[in-house]
Structures are given as C-alpha cells and as structure tokens.
Design a protein around this nucleic acid. Structure first.
Length: 295
DNA sequence: ATTCTTATCCGGAATGGGTA
DNA sequence: TACCCATTCCGGATAAGAAT
C-alpha cells in the first residue's frame, strides 16, 4: 500500500533509483519474499546500479525513507526485522483455537532420521529466502548476524550435542559471503562448536569458489577489504576479489538449500512421519468440526 | 530560500589481530 | 593480557552541503 504523507520533488538520479527499487520490490512481493533495506541494497548492487559502499547503503536508506513518505514505495514492501512487537495471542472462541490446532499440527519429522540438519546464514537480510528453502524440509534456520554470539553458539552446542547423544548426526548447512570475514565465519563456527559439543560437519554450500567460477560474469566481484584483519590470508588463497551471497538470485538460493537438505534425508522414514502427521491433523480437524457442529 | 542529498553522528549484537 | 580498532550483521537521527 502506497500512502503519501508529504510532497517531494526528487532530483538528479534519485527518481531512477526509486523506480528501479519499486520494480524489484514488486517482483519480490509477488514471489512471497519479505525484503529488508539491506537486501534491496545488495540486489541493486548486484545489478550494477549502486556502488558497494557503506555511504551508498546509507543513501539508499534515506531515499527509501523519503520515497515511502512521498507515496512512491509500498509501505509493506520493506521490513525491519530487528524491531518487533509481541502481541499476546487471543482467540475469539474455544472452537477457533481447535481450528488453529488442526492447522498448525506437525510431528517432528526428523525424530526418526539418521541426521539432524540446521541451516545457518551469515546475514539476517537473507533469512526469509533461507526459510523458503528450508521450510519444505521442516528444517530449523538461524541467522548468525555476522559472527555468531557466544550465547547462541553455546545454546547451539547444547542442542546439537543432544542430537548426537540421541544417535543422530548433527549437520549445519552454512551460507555466507565470499570475503575475508565471511569465509572465516564458517571456520569460527567449526572451532567453537568443536569446543562446545565435540565437533560436527559444517557444510558450506554458498558462496564457494567453484560456484563463482561456474556462474562467471553473472556474479559481480568487489575488491576484498584490505583493512580487514583477515585480508592477508584471504588474498593468498583467493586473490583480491570478493563476492556477496546476495549476488545469487533468491530462487537459486532456495534451490541450493532444498537440494542440500534432501541429501541428508531418509525418504522412507520421512514418508512414515508424514503419514503420522496426517493422522494427527485428521483427528484434530474432526474434533474442530464436531465442536463447531454442536453450537 | 527552500528542498533535497550526503555525511556523520548514534544505537544494538558479535570476533579477531595488533599493540601497549 | 587488556584494549583499541578493524570487520560482520541490523538499524535511526540530524546537521551540513548542494541543487533547484
């Protein structure tokens, strides 16, 4: 919904940026993706329409703020995922809660699996895309926000150790930028989980050098930040270019994730779990129908 | 002169390398 | 070893500068 609260006459190339952003945001909304300012920024960078600099990100932030105020960008097309309101859940009738139960019932489909898979992503801006890929496989997702905090890493260690104790093999699928810090974050996850739960397989499925080489010119390179304290080692191994994970199209990312998870799934046991789930849903639906009928 | 853009502050969560 | 400053992620407010 576009609502104008003020009149504005944008100058220079600002109207073009607003138009391009509007087109992109419409595409994503249509596909069911929620987009953050950061994600929009990286998509514009990937198309060569903005330079990859902090000041350009800040500039886009101002432009999007003004463009929304001027009624040129849909207020529902950009989300701030860091500021949320918790509204206590309520129901209009007891029967409506029964219907909610039937709709949301699910068994733990991984309980009988040999593996336990989680999908971790470096940047929160992409969590919506990652969820789309993981959702069909009922896979937990986690956004690290750069280097994972000590708190969440310890919690993850406890959780994953629990799986291992239960004779399941815990696996983390990790996605991050191909830059000095982004590469190091996968190393950091391995190291700290080694300490907290004795280690596990961390499968970095993106962004990797073989993908960059395969996609060739479709992925725009950026100069590696030489001020990054990890730049020395990175340059020795990969050279002076780096690539953003966001440079991959969202649909490409979701496909990568779905295929990666599938490799770890025992399909027979999965199907058994799905049948049990359907029985539960049927049971609850019958209950909901019955209660409604008695009114 | 006013409006718009850009730069520079500020807040939160982290890790890592170099230096005092 | 403690601390500073570099980086990652997520944001906002506002004064100064530029354009119309």
């Amino acid at each position: 919904m576009k609502i104008a609260y003020e009149q504005r006459n944008f100058k220079a190339e600002t109207p073009q940026i607003i138009n391009r952003a509007d087109v992109l945001l419409h595409e994503y909304a249509q596909k069911g993706y929620e987009v953050t300012l950061r994600q929009l920024y990286y998509r514009l960078v990937a198309r060569g329409w903005l330079d990859n600099h902090m000041r350009e990100y800040k500039r886009l932030g101002s432009i999007m703020s003004n463009a929304r105020m001027a009624g040129l960008i849909d207020w529902n097309h950009l989300v701030d995922r860091t500021r949320n309101i918790d509204v206590p859940a309520t129901w209009s009738t007891p029967e409506s809660l029964l219907q909610v139960c039937a709709n949301s019932y699910a068994v733990d489909r991984w309980a009988t699996q040999p593996n336990r898979v989680e999908v971790w992503v470096e940047k929160d801006a992409l969590i919506n895309v990652i969820e789309k890929g993981a959702e069909p496989w009922q896979c937990p997702t986690f956004s690290c926000r750069g280097y994972t905090s000590q708190s969440s890493m310890w919690q993850a260690g406890e959780r994953l150790y629990g799986y291992a104790e239960n004779e399941q093999t815990p696996i983390i699928i990790h996605l991050g930028d191909h830059d000095p810090s982004g590469i190091d974050m996968t190393r950091d996850i391995c190291d700290r989980l080694e300490t907290f739960m004795g280690g596990l397989d961390v499968n970095r499925i993106a962004l990797n050098m073989d993908q960059i080489q395969r996609l060739g010119k479709k992925l725009p390179p950026y100069p590696a930040k030489m001020t990054d304290s990890r730049a020395r080692g990175y340059v020795l191994e990969f050279g002076y270019d780096s690539w953003e994970l966001d440079a991959l199209e969202p649909d490409h990312l979701t496909r990568l994730i779905r295929e990666a998870i599938e490799n770890y799934v025992d399909m027979d046991k999965w199907d058994e779990a799905m049948e049990r789930e359907q029985e539960g849903i049927d049971y609850l639906q019958a209950l909901a129908n019955k209660e409604e009928g008695e009114d």
